[in-house]
Design a protein around this nucleic acid. Structure first.
Lengths: 237, 237
DNA sequence: ACTCTACCCCTTGCATGCAAGCTTGCGCGC
DNA sequence: GCGCGCAAGCTTGCATGCAAGGGGTAGAGT
């Protein structure tokens, strides 16, 4: 029934560098493979903006920093390229994909499409009551964040709320897409402009309207509100 | 239940093989890397249904059949797993992901969402006149296919038509998603049931309605027709 | 006959070595 | 001074070798 609403497990790794000397066998720390660590670390660096757009990075360097060989790093780069975060140039290196304004539009548009479809399915399959408690709780969390003027907390709740809608649809394909899009959006958020605190109140109102639409079982209304919501974000970026 | 199709690895070898003896340097033949070839060959085998759901395949076998080493095959498997065609079981092997009816629903639903969003963007960005000629031409091609009772031709035009809508939106993210979904849908088509020829007429009418909706710049109508269209497909699967 | 255990084989995950290609910078000729 | 060519250094792409981890099976014990 209740799935873990976890916002994202992707940003749970340590940053790059800082690999203190040589760690010959850190597999004891967890079941993560070396490739996973390389993937998570590099992705984190890209999303957080530590790696500038257009930066040319090589497998050997990352491998050295993580104390692993080039092979798992190579695999990580392939994954990141598939996700649109890197561009692999054969025998030259991997460049951190510069993001264009149009790309921001593209990502937001897809996010809107996926989430609207998820909301529609929740409503159509009569699972509104399942997700509503989570949504309300996150909405309350957001209200508190607004009151406390805590932007990070607000963003966390924001991510959680949108993620909860997608998770509630129980569509693994949608979840995968949403995760992909979320990562890229987060990168844009970090890289371009941090959402101004003044936007919080408006965003909160829209979120409340979204939850209300779900509560009213009105998929069309949800889509319409979501459209406005995304459009406003578009303007900010 | 969809498991009686069981095929063993022997059928896989025939599908993948054809590595003419030893080709020490076939890079002269094309720019495709070994990893790409492994990816394409395996994906083809999965989509075409030559590899049965649940089949356990190993990197070494594929590598041997293609005359390459395990490394590029490993990368290919990673990509296929990311696309939802394989499931990697650590130190056991890669199983061809069995597809469940719910997965079919999931894929179709996302396809609907992506394509509707693309149509909406085409209309909103006033590019209807750009795509309309292509759509009309493909529609005509479909009409001919119906008349000739040529199912394969019909399907090709069907794919082309939906792809044209996505391409017309000029959203790379949407295009990527659509490609992913298309592959999976094609696999389902090949594996579960071949669409009956009698469905062609109805599908054609719906396609005509889709194009008409775009022509009328009515995104809502497009979404509605698309919904019916997908729903019918859902029933077929 | 049945069960439990231990072993062997097969599997992946990763490290390393080697070859090929692109870029770049330096030296040489003009 | 300026342009061109060559070579060196970087990069990836792939092959191979090694170790660790499951699974199945055969054998021993009851």
């Amino acid at each position: 029934m209740t799935e873990p609403i976890v916002a994202d497990a992707t940003t749970a790794s340590t940053a790059l560098g800082a690999t203190d000397a040589i760690a010959p066998d850190d597999r004891s720390a967890g079941a993560l493979t070396a490739a996973d660590r390389a993937y998570a670390a590099t992705k984190e660096s890209i999303i957080r903006g530590d790696l500038a757009s257009g930066a040319l990075l090589s497998e050997a360097v990352i491998a050295g920093e993580l104390g692993i060989s080039r092979t798992p790093v190579h695999e990580a780069f392939l994954r990141l390229a598939a996700e649109g975060l890197l561009t692999l140039e054969s025998r030259r290196g991997a460049v951190v994909r510069p993001l264009s304004p149009s790309e921001a539009d593209d990502v937001l548009e897809m996010r809107e499409a996926v989430e609207a479809a998820c909301a529609a399915r929740i409503i159509a399959s009569d699972r509104v009551d399942e997700v509503l408690p989570t949504l309300r709780s996150l909405l309350e969390e957001q209200r508190a964040a607004v009151a406390a003027d805590d932007l990070d907390r607000f963003i966390a709740a924001d991510d959680g709320l949108h993620a909860a809608v997608v998770a509630g649809a129980r569509n693994p394909v949608a979840s995968q897409f949403a995760t992909l899009l979320h990562d890229r959006q987060q990168r844009m958020r970090n890289l371009l402009i941090r959402v101004k605190a003044g936007q919080m109140a408006a965003a909160f109102d829209e979120h409340a309207a979204l939850v209300a639409a779900i509560e009213a079982r009105d998929a069309g209304e949800y889509a319409a509100v979501l459209r406005r919501h995304v459009d406003r974000n578009r303007g900010v970026l």
